[in-house]
Design a protein around this nucleic acid. Structure first.
Lengths: 206, 206
DNA sequence: TTCTGTGAATAGGTTCACAGCT
DNA sequence: AGCTGTGAACCTATTCACAGAA
């Protein structure tokens, strides 16, 4: 398949949200114009994004809401559910475990790990925090594709190396570090301080 | 000033982090090659990014760590500190209040608001959660540039309208909605479920 | 007529490659 | 010699504009 840009993938996720909302409102058809309006983009962009994957619309009419919803869920790999392990039982980790947005999309946090003896054994949203030393053995028993890393910066790379060895193929990283992984593993780093800095840049340069 | 791309601004933030680390290690000089290596980019990219703002290096030598650090802090608007108000005293809000990464960079959370009577009056990392009805009056007394919105999706736009009316110029939004704001207000939306979806896309399309 | 699908045109961002300081 | 600064070349993404299906 042709290489699809990150921005296209992100927009597809957005379109999917709007489609689901439209579906809930009972709409059966939606135009690229409407999707564009709600996603803050242009109708040409919407059509181009979709065209990378096929022709899903009807000229003169628009897109079938249920059909396009199903197609996008398929494209985004959301037809199946995913086991997700979380490493780092800090405040952010705790917030993420109970975040409904993940479960709604089929991402199920199945385990939380930490190395702090104080935290091990405590309950987080129904899950018992496990000693991170069990990581490899647990993942061997229950293969898992996705991990969320919420450790301090200095242990993140170490944790990631272990996750990769244990077969994890995708990592959402909240530690403020650049992570090194093999080419078949995909990492997405979310750096909240950096996001604030893009705001301060904007404030300072007007 | 020439329009600078988001990606350049984000990389500048990264370079700043590496410079600070290098400074802590006692390095006085750093090359574009070294910055590139640590930022996962190329030396040409580093030099190009910096060149939009001036010529800070010495040919044959590299960049002075303290001088470039200071310059980047200036460019990114980090020479001053910022008051930040947080709206939404949920789990994610709680995690963000105590997140050290913000304070270290000069972003000070000065107030937390919620509309839930259960939460109002409780303490979060030394701050008392205030009724969101006080938002406008508080911000009149203590003008604030930046707000972090961590409310449920359906109240986010309402909160943002009030923040904008109260003079907030930059918003970091964690609610999974597209926000409408006037052109002089800058919004950065962080959508964690969407980040996971870019991972599931990558997993599904290999 | 309306709205999609898509080549072509344009704009934007990245990489190249080399002149020019130190 | 080493490394920056920067036009030019290249590549990628977005927008335009229109032919064609419903």
């Amino acid at each position: 398949m042709r290489k699809i840009s990150q921005s296209t993938v992100r927009r597809l996720s957005l379109y999917l949200r709007f489609l689901e909302q439209s579906d809930a409102q009972g709409l059966t058809t939606i135009s690229s114009d409407e999707l564009a309006r709600r996603g803050g983009t242009t109708s040409a962009q919407v059509r181009k994004d979709l065209s990378f994957f096929g022709s899903f619309g009807k000229r003169g009419l628009g897109y079938s809401v249920p059909a396009l919803t199903a197609r996008l869920r398929d494209i985004l790999g959301l037809k199946r559910s995913y086991r997700v392990v979380l490493v780092g039982a800090g405040k952010i980790g705790g917030a993420l475990v109970q975040y409904q947005g993940f479960r709604q999309r089929g991402f199920h946090v199945t385990a939380i790990y930490d190395r702090d003896a104080q935290k091990i054994g405590t309950r987080w949203n129904g899950l018992v925090v496990r000693d991170v030393k069990h990581l490899e053995a647990d993942l061997k028993k229950e293969p898992t594709d996705i991990a969320i890393v919420v450790t301090p910066a200095d242990s993140a790379q170490d944790v990631v190396d272990r996750l990769v060895r244990a077969g994890v193929k995708a990592i959402l990283n909240f530690a403020p570090v650049q992570l090194a992984v093999p080419p078949d593993v995909v990492v997405k780093t979310v750096n909240m301080a950096l996001e604030l800095e893009t705001l301060s840049y904007a404030l300072a340069n007007r």
